[in-house]
Design a protein around this nucleic acid. Structure first.
Lengths: 332, 332
DNA sequence: AGTTATAAGTTAAACGATTAACCAATAGGA
DNA sequence: TCCTATTGGTTAATCGTTTAACTTATAACT
């Protein structure tokens, strides 16, 4: 049988209110009684039932993090950024993975909405986020990494994906490439679209024409990346550079190019995304566009906390991108 | 104001009990009333408050996963194994990271014990787990990855770490190496100790003497790995092979060896642990000992569920290890 | 017709805390 | 001495569900 506050009260010869007050330090209690109560608490290793507390207090000190993709290292690091900040702030974190399933996402948010989490950090699956507006009124929500203009009342923290697309493309152009393929993980999400927008505008700047079929989907997986590269190079022999939007796919692409005896960067130059530590010792070392995932996660939680505490100025953050130059792009 | 069951009942002209019964399908209700109730529920987008439900039902349909280290890819994949199974089974998952802090771990378990979760999956920080026995009686707990014989009443699912140590060492010996260094992440945890035991026994089998100072700590980080390798090779010029227990450290080691112009595998052969996709395209491709992290996570959740449902046969699982041979060990 | 079973709802007591409102006893001030 | 504050503590309502026990009304059987 689990021991409750009532048991503690009985054994200490006081009321439950008194026990509650010594635990929460919410009223003066004489030293002698306080000591007695604490003794009994210690004796039974008693911890207040948080479900009951939550019900009464209408707060759970728990936040949810809903991510859409799973194991890639960028998301992984972002998760731990959120978790870290949550922990520091005395919050627990509920982790849900929607696997890019928009229907499941909506169901999840709805359930979470009643699960009495105090707030939700969401990295949404699709660009069709109107359903969210039903929830943002009554529940603190912040969008992370991906976003959509349609969502009201939810701040967001993202990376500067436009610059990622622009700088990577420009860099490849400066290396003399006029036909640059792009391999993305998932369509219809802001991260992909912003990067493509950057890619497009960089091409424009140099008077190169943007071609729709230079883009190929790679599903964020090693295999998907490899297949996308193969497909792209078969269809367009003129392509001499690849911009790859996720590090699993980069691994797949590199493996595939080796298999096809295509050398990097001489035959095909290459820029990836996300700085997994291995990038530096891959052959050749790969040039990456990077964003600070952990920082993004932490910032998102901070913003959520502000919303929870009703500091109601909606502010969005866009964290700066940068490039770490190695050999796969043709440098050195 | 959040709408409650009372509001639904009032508007539908029935009692709260009836509403509850239609929601949970726990009593016959006439079609007409049922329809009315469901209509109102839909109109307000009502979802029952789960905190209240939890309090009454004494179950939260939530499990906690407490991991000790954070971002390495093995743990990451294990996390998603647990999350996946939990999701499939209708459970939510609370994720806590103790950062190898034993004191924080104990505090966490104690708080979690307060009925916020139905069960706990723990990958513990240290080998000193006696404190756990206070909790295993009253809370379903399963150990994952790491374990300790002292813990009673908690099943475990681990990998066959002994074989990992043995096979890696034997393989290096067969390549002609007599002086093999070992770089581990953390001391005093079963994973490390079992692998060292395997390492030791492989040496014995070939009549090689085990030397304590061939072991070096690398803290599971890229930098730590690099420093450990440097230290080890400076101290013991005779070392010609390295067995590295975590993939971040492997990256650090390889970078450091390049820096020192030491070639792999000719000067130093090398076997790592954990199969991050990049392993295949690193220069040279690295030979790894592997374990199925996702499977370990899923199995752990299944076991937890059994415990939660009081199917009280404690069974432990040890998942088999294997080796994926590439060039860093000297093969090919 | 009389008895019993069943079906469809309702009432009200939990679940285990928190906390506003209340009360008695002591202290302080004039 | 009388009045008012303050201190230390208790009582009881409340959070939003679930569910056992109860109540009718209707159906079924002899």
């Amino acid at each position: 049988m689990k021991v409750t506050m009532k048991d503690i009260a009985r054994e200490a010869g006081v009321s439950v209110a008194t026990v509650s007050h010594v635990i929460n330090d919410t009223k003066n209690i004489t030293e002698v009684k306080k000591k007695k109560v604490l003794e009994i608490i210690d004796k039974y290793n008693y911890v207040p039932n948080s479900t009951a507390k939550n019900l009464r207090r209408k707060s759970t000190k728990t936040a949810a993090l809903v991510v859409s993709s799973s194991t890639d290292s960028f998301v992984n690091e972002m998760i731990f950024g959120v978790e870290k900040k949550a922990r520091e702030m005395g919050y627990s974190l509920l982790l849900v993975n929607t696997n890019e399933d928009a229907v499941y996402e909506e169901k999840t948010i709805k359930i979470l909405h009643s699960k009495m989490v105090d707030g939700i950090i969401l990295s949404p699956t699709s660009n069709d986020l109107d359903y969210l507006n039903k929830f943002t009124k009554s529940m603190p929500i912040v969008l992370v990494n991906r976003y959509n203009e349609v969502v009201k009342n939810a701040p967001r923290v993202t990376g500067d994906n436009y610059t990622i697309g622009f700088d990577a493309t420009e860099h490849l152009i400066e290396h003399g490439h006029n036909n640059i393929g792009l391999i993305y993980s998932v369509p219809n999400v802001s991260t992909t679209e912003e990067r493509i927008r950057g890619y497009k505008e960089a091409l424009e700047k140099y008077n190169l024409t943007y071609k729709n079929n230079y883009l190929e989907i790679g599903y964020g997986t090693v295999d998907g990346g490899g297949k996308a590269a193969e497909e792209l190079l078969k269809r367009h022999k003129e392509i001499t550079a690849l911009f790859i939007l996720n590090d699993f796919m980069t691994v797949g692409v590199i493996s595939k190019l080796r298999e096809l005896s295509i050398t990097i960067p001489d035959d095909i130059a290459l820029i990836g995304f996300g700085d997994s530590p291995a990038s530096a010792i891959i052959d050749p070392p790969v040039t990456n566009m990077i964003l600070p995932p952990q920082e993004i996660g932490e910032k998102a939680f901070k913003l959520l906390l502000k919303k929870i505490n009703k500091e109601n100025d909606i502010e969005n953050f866009e964290l700066p991108a940068s490039m770490v130059v190695r050999k796969s792009c043709g440098c050195q």
